[in-house]
């Protein structure tokens, strides 16, 4: 099996979907001749033509709004927001329109779009190229929110997202793009939305993560295993709909849980996970639910010591694991 990076896997998945279904179009800034600022759509315009690979003006609301319209008229648009940090002008279109079209029309219309957005920090991107926005979109019923962490999952999930009949916010951690490599099968396969994956089996503590933090959590688990702490790592993969079954069965097994995300803490996605665990697995808990997150600052600062301070790291996660293990 070929070893590929996350971005290669995503590119392959999207390419195959465009080959498979001519209703799939991609639109966004610099995605044509430039192939996207991360080169995810490199070669797409040459293969699929300018009608299906649309370089848009610099206008996020239009990118998503036109995708919504095209979806209501039978296409399967995949909109690219160059950086998640720039998605805010399109939030009205995503939250007020895409998420509500099926609901408000009792399925007279639906909105099968995918909005891809590279997110996350640790790449010296500063305040406006590092943000994590999963909590914002996961809050919205009507949206599905996906955040893959491995190349295998990335390819299978992008395919599932394109084939889904409802709007999907597809968050790609930009640091994983070229950092994370893994085996990716040739040809067609789908990783279904709404299914978490236990990436490491363990019996003492559950660590829940997604995106880059999944890899940091696996590193941390490896480090503490030398101290005899056996950590289970759950990769959520899809944040909404949440795979409660996998989450809760892991927590029930270990009795202790740490949630890791690099978004800030207050009202972050970890808050929802914590509440769910407290509501539905309280009797199984042997310690407090712990969150390892960025501090509550508006965004990730640029200068390396500031950025490092804000980013959760394998060391910080390992520290939290040791502390909770001793509880």
């Amino acid at each position: 099996m070929a070893v590929k990076t996350v971005i290669e896997a995503l590119r392959e998945g999207l390419w195959e979907e465009m080959k498979r279904d001519e209703r799939v179009i991609v639109l966004g800034e610099d995605i044509g001749i430039q192939g996207g600022v991360f080169r995810l759509t490199d070669g797409f315009v040459q293969e699929f033509g300018e009608e299906r690979v649309i370089d848009t003006p610099l206008a996020e609301s239009l990118i998503v709004g036109a995708a919504i319209g095209a979806a209501m008229n039978g296409l399967k648009p995949v909109a690219e927001i160059q950086f998640a940090d720039f998605i805010y002008p399109a939030v009205d279109q995503i939250i007020n329109e895409a998420a509500k079209i099926r609901y408000r029309s009792t399925s007279n219309y639906s909105c099968p779009i995918v909005v891809r957005a590279p997110y996350g920090g640790g790449i010296h991107g500063g305040l406006y190229h590092s943000q994590s926005l999963e909590a914002l979109f996961s809050h919205i019923a009507g949206l599905k929110v996906v955040a893959p962490s491995t190349p295998y999952d990335a390819k299978g999930l992008i395919k599932a997202a394109v084939r889904d009949v409802d709007p999907v916010i597809f968050l790609e951690h930009k640091k994983t793009y070229r950092l994370i490599k893994g085996e990716v099968p040739e040809g067609d396969y789908v990783v279904p939305l709404g299914k978490a994956d236990v990436k490491r089996q363990g019996k003492n503590i559950t660590v829940v993560a997604y995106g880059l933090m999944l890899h940091y959590s696996l590193e941390a688990a490896e480090a503490v295993s030398r101290d005899g702490i056996d950590v289970e790592v759950v990769d959520l993969r899809t944040l909404r709909p949440l795979d409660k079954e996998t989450l809760l069965s892991s927590v029930k097994k270990t009795g202790k849980v740490i949630i890791v995300h690099e978004d800030s803490k207050f009202g972050g996605f970890g808050a929802e996970l914590s509440a769910t665990i407290a509501e539905e697995a309280f009797d199984y808990l042997d310690g407090p639910i712990v969150r390892v997150t960025a501090p509550d600052v508006p965004a990730m600062p640029y200068s390396p010591p500031l950025e490092d301070y804000c980013m959760p790291s394998p060391e910080k996660i390992a520290g939290a694991i040791r502390q909770l293990a001793a509880y």
Binding site: V64, G65, I68, G69
Partner: peptide, 19 residues
Amino acid sequence: STSSPIAVQLPHAAGIALA
């Protein structure tokens, strides 16, 4: 299908026409 916020439907119309 349409909504109460103003002008949001204009990009939809462009997208429908694009399709």
